[in-house]
């Protein structure tokens, strides 16, 4: 579904990504993890054609992202960028409705209304449709932004640190919805996560990066390993097991 071939990028002489290649199959939740400055957000924004690599190619759902027209690509790939300041006096339904713009270009039809309703239901926002964004909590706002990306109806959905500033309740809620998005709607979800344990709890695959290179790209259980995580984060990490789940103990 996503093919990344020999992608490199540097900003003002500093190398951000060096010769990254990665192949992600269709379906499931893939978590991009790594310490600050590992290049995970840069890689995601390149998949979303928000940034151009200096070298290399990226193909999403069979489309070369650099060569495909943006409005065509917007029907195959949705992206939720890192938190942005939203206009406060837009309703939840209006915001989610703009996710349908690539399909209707200004004239929403019955199919668009159904998709918006589905997204609002899927992200637990029923009852909030008519509320202005400025009256929502930060967590509800993130859910609304994710619902907008879902409403776009694309096979691939990319999310850049959607858990930023969320409390444990909302973070868990959002991850559960992303899980459903992959399992029930069959979307390919790629999400940049700060917290390795959210990745361990919810993702099928983990792509771990450090210093602009991929250290590990494997099923979650293989990456949730003391030796691998120590290579990723550069600090000793212990793995504990509780009820069959692996938890990284990195606090002390």
């Amino acid at each position: 579904m996503i093919e990344i071939e020999a992608v490199s990028c540097s900003i003002r002489g500093a190398s951000i990504l060096s010769d990254v290649s990665l192949s992600l199959g269709a379906g499931g939740v893939t978590a991009l993890v790594g310490p600050n400055g590992a290049g995970k957000s840069t890689l995601l924004s390149m998949m979303a054609r928000l940034r151009r690599p200096d070298r290399g190619t990226i193909t999403v759902a069979g489309h070369d992202v650099a060569a495909t027209r943006p409005r065509v690509l917007a029907r195959h790939l949705a992206v939720m960028p890192q938190d942005a300041a939203l206009p406060g006096r837009l309703t939840v339904a209006e915001l989610v409705g703009f996710g349908r713009f690539p399909h209707h270009r200004g004239r929403p039809g019955p199919a668009d209304r159904v998709a918006v309703e589905e997204a609002i239901t899927a992200f637990g926002l029923v009852g909030f449709e008519g509320r202005f964004l400025e009256t929502l909590s930060g967590g509800q706002r993130q859910l609304a932004r994710a619902a907008m990306a879902f409403a776009q109806g694309t096979p691939v959905v990319l999310l850049d640190e959607p858990l930023n500033n969320l409390d444990i309740v909302h973070a868990r809620q959002l991850m559960a919805r992303l899980r459903l998005m992959a399992d029930e709607a069959g979307r390919t979800v790629v999400v940049v996560l700060h917290d390795i344990n959210h990745a361990g709890a919810w993702a099928d695959r983990i792509v771990a990066m450090r210093g602009g290179r991929i250290v590990a790209a494997a099923p979650t259980d293989e990456v949730m390993d003391e030796a691998v995580l120590e290579r990723v984060y550069g600090v000793p990490v212990r793995i504990a097991s509780a009820d069959g789940e692996r938890i990284a103990l990195h606090f002390r």
Partner: peptide
């Protein structure tokens, strides 16, 4: 009136706008 929707999309931020195919 014809660019009204795109103006609102622009107010969501540059990346969100490009993600919706709005240049």
């Amino acid at each position: 009136v014809f660019i009204a929707d795109r103006l609102t999309i622009l107010s969501l931020g540059r990346d969100a706008a490009e993600g919706l195919g709005v240049s």
